[in-house]
Design a protein around this nucleic acid. Structure first.
Ligand SMILES: [Mn+2]
Ligand SMILES: [Mn+2]
Ligand SMILES: [Zn+2]
Ligand SMILES: [Zn+2]
Lengths: 139, 139
DNA sequence: CTCCTAATGATAATAGTTCTCAATAATGTT
DNA sequence: AACATTATTGAGAACTATTATCATTAGGAG
């Protein structure tokens, strides 16, 4: 997870903005953040950062494999730090909270698709929707 | 799949616009369409329909369970007719084509989550990304 | 330190979606 | 069949999220 190394190896520069965004993402492991949230949190650290830079940085990080893009059931995208530990998400449709869960069942599926079809799977995206414990008891 | 019945049972009115949108979705089974595409296709059938009506109708249909919202790796949403046959999608990251596949592996996962956690899963969304046969040979 | 140019911030532009509101038309009632 | 009620519609404004533009700044190789 050495950002400087990863950036330089691809010819990118190491800037305080990029370091600040990374810190925010690392400190929010387990909490997928949308660009606006990353912007607000990063501003506390690097006051003058622009929103466009946040968007650019998130796309760059995604390209570098530093972050993953998560699909929640909403319009805007969310990003989370890529810890290497493959997992998926349970999204509460009531309060919007996100839980992670390990044990991906898709690996086997990818395997069978590799055999049955000519489609080459390179990645997948799985999210479960429902109600979290808190929202269930609050009824 | 009786639209009129389903609409009336919830106190909604049966309009030519709604019937036209349904027809478009039915004729494009297997092809998730975004609102703009639904708009264009529906116009060929009901010339004067407005874009806002398409958005409203898709949301209503989703509420009624007539359509499903599909998450492709893009900004805008896509909708497809709900045939009742549960399936998921393989999206080609090169040409954007979408294939369907049956055999959902998530059912088992939902089961194990129901046992291991207090989260109640009501739905899920799974998409595979990769390269379709056409794009693979074209290289 | 100097130079080159990648990166940045401000802001304009674009795209997608939702809102507003007056006009229309679907349905229930006479 | 005519009427009354009110859900629905179309047009366009408004809004939100994202991307593009461009002059300025600053990372880092030499
Ligand atoms: Mn996560
Ligand atoms: Mn489908
Ligand atoms: Zn393809
Ligand atoms: Zn499934």
């Amino acid at each position: 997870m050495d950002l400087s190394r990863r950036l330089r190896s691809r010819g990118h520069r190491v800037t305080p903005q990029r370091k600040a965004v990374l810190e925010v993402l690392q400190e929010n492991e387990g909490v997928p953040l949308d660009p606006e949230a990353v912007f607000e949190l990063t501003r506390e650290r690097h006051a003058g950062i622009g929103l466009a830079t946040v968007y650019r940085t998130l796309e760059l990080f995604r390209d570098l494999g530093v972050v993953l893009r998560v699909h929640l059931h909403e319009g805007s995208q969310h990003y989370e730090i890529n810890t290497g530990g493959h997992h998926h998400h349970m999204v509460c449709v009531s309060c919007g909270s996100v839980d992670e869960f390990d044990g991906c069942v898709v690996d086997d599926l990818e395997e069978s698709i590799r055999e049955d079809s000519d489609f080459v799977v390179t990645s997948h995206c799985l999210s479960l929707f429902g109600y979290c414990p808190a929202c269930l008891t609050a009824r």
